[in-house]
Design a protein around this nucleic acid. Structure first.
Lengths: 190, 190
DNA sequence: CGCCAGGTTTTGTGATCACATGAGCGGATG
DNA sequence: CATCCGCTCATGTGATCACAAAACCTGGCG
């Protein structure tokens, strides 16, 4: 999810097992679970790799993020009190720090933490789980994307999100979330 | 997914394996995969049951269906030619037959076939996969719902969907899909 | 009659093994 | 020098086993 593995990387059950000090059996179960969520790709012969997404697939997953996360943000809005907004601002400064350090994995991790913190307030666990499934599918690709990105400016859309939360501005919030979610991925697909 | 198993039913790995003539290992993998998708519930001790959904969870999953399936239908609309509409009408008559026979499992199966046939035209595999994950989570509960339902009238919303497809009426299609998806589940939650 | 404690049985977990399959590499040939 | 064939090794699959924990059933006690 955090982009620690590059797209198309090959994994082996014995390798995963060895890495975590267990046998093939638990490794297999974990791989099957992740494959069920689309986070790993199982070739017809059972070989395991991280997925290499086509542009169409990336656009589709971006549309899914927009659909799900706009709804989650919208549901979180009436429950977003000051304590939450403060936490979001703290996380956002961490995001900015990761951007300035050009730490791609750290950026993805803190960025997703920002979103998750907001969406947790939506009290919609199934919807949040689906959003996280999409993040999981995009993980390796996002890393490849932000790796080639030459940005050092802090995330502008996050500030728009926070402003909309403070103002209780639902249309503004929906727009800001949609922009934040789609903008980065449009670049790669383009 | 088709509601063949009632909510809260207990499953055992050895039982599943025996049922399909395999050992525990493949049964475990299948169970773990289904649990990852939320179709099965793993207790803290590893016991496997079908989930018993709370009303809040049912409403949330209904909202997810609405969100995803309205989008899928909308994307399918421009590609929906006459051959597809004919197929949908054929399937819909099967749905009506299942309703009149009070065959709950058959109704769920043909109803989902109706939706899947339409959504396949959207050319959005990831989105369709998510919708099917929701169906999977709702399977046992839908059976319990339609079992207590005393309906013998054919599905009205399906006819609205077909009419909107014929007319190329996107707002009407969105509304019809949303109604079709949410109406049944509102009953149970209410 | 209800409730609790004992033991027995069921059940999931993780490891290991034999086997089949496919990938990757090396060498031979045109 | 490129291409193709064959072999070897790595890899996933499914079965089986020993073990631990939890569930269930049974009998006894209040």
């Amino acid at each position: 999810m955090h982009g620690e593995i590059t797209p198309g990387a090959a994994l082996t059950l014995r390798g995963i097992g060895g890495e975590f000090g267990v046998s093939m059996t638990p490794a297999r179960e974990a791989v099957r679970r992740l494959a069920a969520e689309g986070a790993l790709f199982l070739s017809s012969s059972g070989r395991v790799t991280t997925p290499e997404l086509t542009n169409e697939r990336i656009e589709e997953l971006a549309a899914l993020r927009a659909l799900l996360e706009v709804e989650l943000a919208s549901r979180a809005l009436p429950r977003a009190h000051m304590a939450l907004i403060d936490r979001l601002q703290t996380i956002n400064s961490n995001v900015a720090e990761m951007v300035s350090k050009r730490d791609a994995v750290g950026y993805i991790r803190t960025n997703l933490e920002f979103h998750r913190t907001l969406y947790l307030r939506a009290q919609a666990p199934a919807m949040l789980a689906m959003a996280e499934t999409v993040w999981l599918q995009l993980g390796p690709t996002m890393r490849a994307l932000y790796g080639r990105l030459r940005r050092t400016d802090p995330p502008q859309n996050h500030r728009l999100i926070i402003a909309a939360l403070k103002a209780g501005d639902e249309p503004g919030l929906r727009l800001a979330v949609r922009s934040d979610v789609t903008q980065g991925l449009r670049l790669l697909a383009g």
